[in-house]
Structure formats: C-alpha cells, structure tokens
C-alpha cells in the first residue's frame, strides 16, 4: 500500500475557506455540516493569526474503524483511504465519538456517518480532491505520502506533530516558518 495524504501548509494557508466551499459543492454537504473545516486560531501572546484546514486524517489505525460495531468503516488497501460503507452503517455515531480529530460527521437525513473521502470519486477519474484543486493559497497538496514528505523536506519544512494515541494520521501539517 502506498498511502494517499493531504499536506496542509500552515504558512501558505490564507484562511479564505475555499476548501470548505468547494467540498460542499462537490459533495453536496448542506448548511451547518462539514467534511472539512477551517478554524481560525486567534493571535495570542505575540503569536500571529493562523488558520487550520481540517479534512479527514485517513489514519493508519483509524479510531472510527475500531469503534464501529457494524464493520462499516474500512481502510482501502491500495491507497489507505478510510471509507464508510453506508449500506452497513447503522447510524450509532460511535465513530463520531471515537475520532480524536472531530472529523466524523453525521448525515441526519440518511441517518449515516459522513466524512471526507479525499474525493475518492474524483481520484478514480485521475483528478485531485476538490479542496486541493481550488485552493487559492497553494496550501493544500495531495499525493502519495512519501512524495509529499519529500516536497516538504525540499523546502526544509518542519512537520507539526498532530498524532493522537495510536491514530497515525495521514493528513499532515507543515509548521509556520515562525510563530
């Protein structure tokens, strides 16, 4: 398996929330619900204003999968995407509780769990996730994780440690150049 990932560059993100908007248009996500969300981290103690775009982390050991009593969440062997089999989902929301990143949403109309798929339907057509394709800041990058890490080290960028427990997130963040 060669894991797919999104690299989020915290220095390049300009906080415009284009990723939120494009995700909603691409995936029919309605008002008040999110598959990816940008949070604004207010300036504090002389640190500057920062933004954080938060899609699904597509973890190595997904807590959502471990928590699912119906076996509806699986990790796709060929690319490591964490996906939901909506036919198996029983709508218990254990996965929403389990995900340490708050990435698991819930479709109250269909009563099933709902989250970012890295736009799996677009990947199948050889396209990039919608949020990455449209990102004005060139802050979101998609690809095989190894290639993205090489890109980051070419720019001598530090990664932010966002691992929680044994999750092993695939989405990763490049630290700001200075606080």
């Amino acid at each position: 398996m060669s894991q797919y990932a999104i690299m989020v560059d915290l220095e390049r993100c300009i906080g415009c929330k284009s990723c939120e908007a494009s995700c909603k248009l691409e995936n029919g996500v309605p008002e008040g619900r999110y598959r990816t969300k940008v949070i604004w981290i207010n300036p504090r103690n002389d640190k500057r204003l920062s933004f954080m775009s938060m899609p699904c982390m597509h973890c190595e050991n997904p807590a959502c999968r471990a928590s699912c009593p119906a076996g509806a969440i699986y990790k796709r062997p060929e690319d490591g995407l964490v996906l939901i089999d909506k036919n198996k989902c029983i709508g218990c929301r254990y996965c929403s509780w389990a995900c340490p990143y708050g990435a698991m949403g819930f479709d109250a109309e269909k009563m099933v769990a709902d989250k970012c798929t890295y736009c799996a339907h677009r990947l199948a057509r050889g396209e990039q996730p919608a949020c990455v394709a449209k990102c004005p800041g060139h802050a979101l990058h998609f690809g095989r994780k190894g290639e993205l890490l090489a890109k980051a080290s070419f720019e001598k960028r530090k990664q932010r440690d966002v691992n929680i427990g044994k999750a092993g997130p695939s989405t990763f963040y490049l630290e700001r150049l200075k606080p």
Partner: peptide, 14 residues
C-alpha cells in the same frame, strides 16, 4: 483577492 494573494504568498514562502 484571495487567489492573487495566495500566489503572492506562495512565492513569498518559496
């Protein structure tokens, strides 16, 4: 002008 500033900022980082 997010799209324009995004490109400027990309260049700045590079």
């Amino acid at each position: 002008k997010p799209v324009m500033f995004g490109a400027v900022n990309d260049e700045r980082v590079k």
